[in-house]
Computed example of a mutant assay.
Amino acid sequence: MNLRDRPRRLRTDGIRPLVSETSLDASDLIAPVFVDATADERVPIETMPGHERVPVDEAVARVEEIRETGVEAVMLFGIPEAKDEVGSRAWARDGVVQEATRRVTRETDAYVITDVCLCEYTSHGHCGVLEDDAAEDPRLTVKNDETLELLTKTAVSQAEAGADMVAPSSMTDGMVGAIREGLDEAGYSDVPIMSYAAKYESAFYGPFRDAADGAPAFGNRRHYQMDPANAREAMREVRLDVEQGADVLMVKPALPYLDIVRGVREEFDQPVAAYNVSGEYAMLHAAADKGWLNLEEVALESLLSIKRAGADLILTYFAEDVADAL
């Protein structure tokens, strides 16, 4: 061993912060907020400790709580008062996300991102218009092109309500191009699109589906979300979204897909976002509840690993806790 080469020299308390390669700040984080049109008071989400569904009347107060920690951006998810086959409450002018967006943008300085998908709004829980007899035949799936029109209507309605950014998450082919065209035609050319460009059909989404009441009533989403085995396909998906005008590129989930985050960062110039999903959050909480892990330490280390892999933005249920620790 060459004793002149001693990396430990740079690990003492005085120098360690100065040579740290990766930094994490509250301004890197986006906090999810679940707004429930069926609730009159806050409802704890059992599978996501520390999180609640909030009624529309509580949306502003909830966002202000987040802002007090230093987190500047939120993403709004909605639980509507009614559902139907096509998810028509997703683009209703008086829809839950639209109303929450108007209030939050009017009364706070938060940067408001809105989720553009139909699964929370459809009676079947899938992310678009179903093919005929899809409930009886698992080989059938969501109609791609018919769904594009509804996603576009949803994004435009959210922009009209004041959304600073829209985030389509359905993995519908052509969704970014359709939404970009719709926003531009409606006069919202300045509203950016954060596309869920590489969204996997993951087992880590379970608690979110409880929180947003968006679990499929039958079947699964393997016909439109990505196969966890595929990495090259992710680059193809992301490239298509870039060509269609995506402003920010999302990888979801984060921790099991850090190789994808790194690949997107190296291949593309757009900002990269990663979604530290509900299952990642819940499993750390469960281990901490057992006394097996220190929750604050593993939460911070997890987010640092996502940032180190190349994410510029992290959507995480740990946002407030980590922001306080920072």
Score class of each variant (00 low, 15 high):
residue 149 E to F: 04
residue 136 E to F: 09
residue 172 T to S: 10
residue 152 T to Q: 01
residue 129 V to L: 13
residue 175 M to A: 11
residue 227 D to F: 02
residue 181 E to P: 06
residue 144 N to M: 08
residue 183 L to M: 06
residue 144 N to S: 11
residue 181 E to K: 15
residue 206 G to K: 06
residue 141 T to D: 06
residue 207 P to W: 07
residue 156 V to I: 08
residue 132 D to T: 09
residue 123 S to E: 12
residue 209 R to C: 08
residue 220 N to D: 15
residue 202 S to M: 05
residue 177 G to K: 12
residue 182 G to Q: 05
residue 170 S to A: 15
residue 201 E to T: 13
residue 139 R to Y: 13
residue 197 A to N: 09
residue 126 H to R: 11
residue 149 E to R: 03
residue 140 L to R: 15
residue 223 H to N: 15
residue 219 G to N: 07
residue 135 A to V: 08
residue 180 R to I: 11
residue 190 D to C: 12
residue 214 G to V: 07
residue 187 G to Q: 07
residue 173 D to M: 07
residue 162 G to M: 03
residue 195 S to A: 15
residue 156 V to Y: 00
residue 188 Y to V: 10
residue 142 V to K: 02
residue 158 Q to F: 04
residue 203 A to F: 10
residue 207 P to T: 12
residue 176 V to S: 08
residue 140 L to C: 14
residue 202 S to Q: 05
residue 180 R to M: 02
residue 186 A to G: 02
residue 140 L to I: 05
residue 187 G to S: 09
residue 148 L to Q: 07
residue 214 G to I: 08
residue 133 D to N: 13
residue 212 A to R: 04
residue 147 T to N: 11
residue 126 H to K: 09
residue 176 V to R: 12
residue 172 T to H: 00
residue 179 I to E: 10
residue 190 D to R: 12
residue 140 L to M: 15
residue 139 R to S: 15
residue 200 Y to E: 02
residue 188 Y to I: 12
residue 199 K to T: 12
residue 141 T to F: 05
residue 172 T to D: 01
residue 137 D to V: 04
residue 149 E to K: 00
residue 189 S to K: 04
residue 192 P to L: 05
residue 182 G to N: 04
residue 132 D to S: 14
residue 202 S to G: 04
residue 222 R to Q: 13
residue 122 T to W: 04
residue 214 G to F: 03
residue 157 S to M: 07
residue 187 G to N: 07
residue 174 G to M: 02
residue 122 T to K: 07
residue 152 T to Y: 01
residue 169 S to D: 11
residue 136 E to V: 01
residue 147 T to S: 14
residue 203 A to K: 10
residue 181 E to N: 09
residue 227 D to E: 09
residue 120 E to G: 13
residue 130 L to Y: 06
residue 184 D to V: 12
residue 167 A to P: 01
residue 145 D to C: 01
residue 213 D to Y: 03
residue 188 Y to S: 03
residue 226 M to S: 10
residue 130 L to V: 04
residue 226 M to Q: 14
residue 209 R to F: 15
residue 198 A to V: 15
residue 169 S to M: 12
residue 161 A to H: 10
residue 153 K to P: 01
residue 186 A to K: 04
residue 199 K to H: 06
residue 200 Y to N: 13
residue 217 A to P: 03
residue 228 P to T: 11
residue 136 E to D: 10
residue 134 A to C: 12
residue 128 G to Q: 02
residue 172 T to L: 06
residue 159 A to G: 07
residue 157 S to T: 00
residue 174 G to Q: 08
residue 183 L to E: 01
residue 205 Y to M: 02
residue 141 T to H: 08
residue 124 H to I: 13
residue 169 S to H: 09
residue 153 K to V: 02
residue 191 V to W: 00
residue 130 L to N: 00
residue 163 A to V: 14
residue 129 V to A: 10
residue 192 P to Q: 09
residue 219 G to W: 13
residue 221 R to D: 02
residue 170 S to G: 15
residue 159 A to Y: 03
residue 195 S to G: 11
residue 216 P to D: 00
residue 125 G to Q: 01
residue 123 S to T: 08
residue 135 A to I: 06
residue 124 H to P: 01
residue 196 Y to T: 08
residue 162 G to K: 01
residue 200 Y to D: 09
residue 218 F to R: 11
residue 137 D to A: 02
residue 182 G to D: 02
residue 128 G to W: 04
residue 159 A to M: 08
residue 131 E to T: 08
residue 157 S to L: 04
residue 155 A to P: 10
residue 140 L to F: 14
residue 168 P to C: 06
residue 142 V to M: 05
residue 151 L to M: 13
residue 218 F to M: 05
residue 136 E to T: 05
residue 166 V to R: 02
